[in-house]
Design a protein around this nucleic acid. Structure first.
Lengths: 211, 211
DNA sequence: GTCTATAACGGGATAGAC
DNA sequence: GTCTATCCCGTTATAGAC
């Protein structure tokens, strides 16, 4: 009645049932992400994650079949979620440069919104199983490809001037993702303020829009 | 006679003695860096590092007092060494933009030359003791500060046009450092070829030299 | 779904002979 | 400086009661 198999994680094939259990999963993911970001994946035990939830470590195995599954869920949040939430910005109306500007902005805001998860996802990739790592890398490559596509579109319309598009995309995405490592919500600039300036640096500078 | 205290690591205060022992240290650092980059710091045991050197794990403690000291030595290679070897490029003759271009090139070549060490240094910072982490961060900040300085100099001469210099420096350095994560020596572009294009993207694009 | 209790394992580090 | 042998501790994960 209360749903068996809730420890099975990956597929998420089912439908609308198991509401409470899903909530619990999300809470565990968030709590674990904070700890992992703070101290590193291997310096956080299941006991410590459980402590943050005020339960015992054994109880975590009702929601995840292993510690690695928790890490995998965190990594999905910062790869699959941007694919679903940010990439549609590239299909909106507007010129390629304008759509790319919106993506850059959305990308940075997502990095700020899910900062701890991004920190974990960037640093702990090596701890995933090869199968899970492949899935994560596929999401990343998909995202990167779409960025290359819109830059190419901008080059065709003459809005952008880039010689080596894949290389420029790498340059850009590395610059953006670095943001999650140094941004502090209580710092002098808000995420939105940084986003404004990064959009200007990237579009008007790096990729050179012709006026 | 053969030097006591060779297990003491940090200071490096001494002079010219202990030649053999230093060689051994360097070999251990290199071997460990390869393993750490491959599998992650916590997935490599002292036994595995020792295996790569064809000695027993206990013998490693004649050269380093702990596993963390090995990691610290790796991190120094990619923070202290660039400060010593790359920053002098900023004191060479030439315009600010020209000197910065040489630094960008030298930075990327160093990232390629010491790629495994950079991968470790970027990913395993959390495993250092707070004291060691402070030293590493001080080197990083020093390097970053010098980059800001040369950009400021370029702005003053009118060669460069940048509104928020610290932010542009972060953008640039994040883009450059990302290179070590995706570069493959056996890939289509050599490190020098990437460096050429990155110099162009950074100086002529991002920071906009006036012709 | 959570608990107590514990199994099973591997890690870093040390002692002391040579 | 390297060896053999071992200590000591923390880890993930499981068993089975409630």
């Amino acid at each position: 009645m209360t749903e068996p198999g809730s420890t099975l994680s990956g597929g998420e094939t089912g439908g609308r049932r198991r509401l409470v259990s899903l909530r619990r999963r999300e809470e565990i993911i968030s709590a674990a992400a904070v700890k992992f970001a703070e101290k590193g994946y291997h310096n956080v035990g299941m006991r410590e994650i459980a402590d943050a939830m005020a339960i015992r470590s054994a109880s975590l195995y009702n929601h995840f079949s292993s510690k690695e599954e928790i890490l995998y869920a965190i990594c999905l949040r910062v790869t699959e979620e941007p694919v679903r939430q940010q990439l549609p910005l590239l299909d909106a109306p507007g010129t390629p440069a304008g759509r790319l500007a919106q993506l850059v902005r959305g990308h940075l805001l997502h990095l700020a919104h899910r900062q701890v998860e991004h920190l974990v996802g960037l640093h702990e990739m090596a701890e995933l199983t090869p199968e899970h790592r492949d899935v994560i890398n596929a999401h990343r490559r998909h995202y990167q490809r779409r960025v290359e596509d819109v830059i190419n579109a901008g080059v065709r319309t003459g809005e952008l001037a880039v010689q080596d598009v894949p290389l420029a995309a790498l340059f850009l995405l590395d610059a953006l993702n670095g943001f999650s490592r140094w941004f502090r919500p209580d710092g002098p600039l808000s995420a939105a303020a940084v986003a404004d300036r990064y959009v200007h640096l990237a579009i008007d500078g790096l990729l050179r829009r012709q006026p």
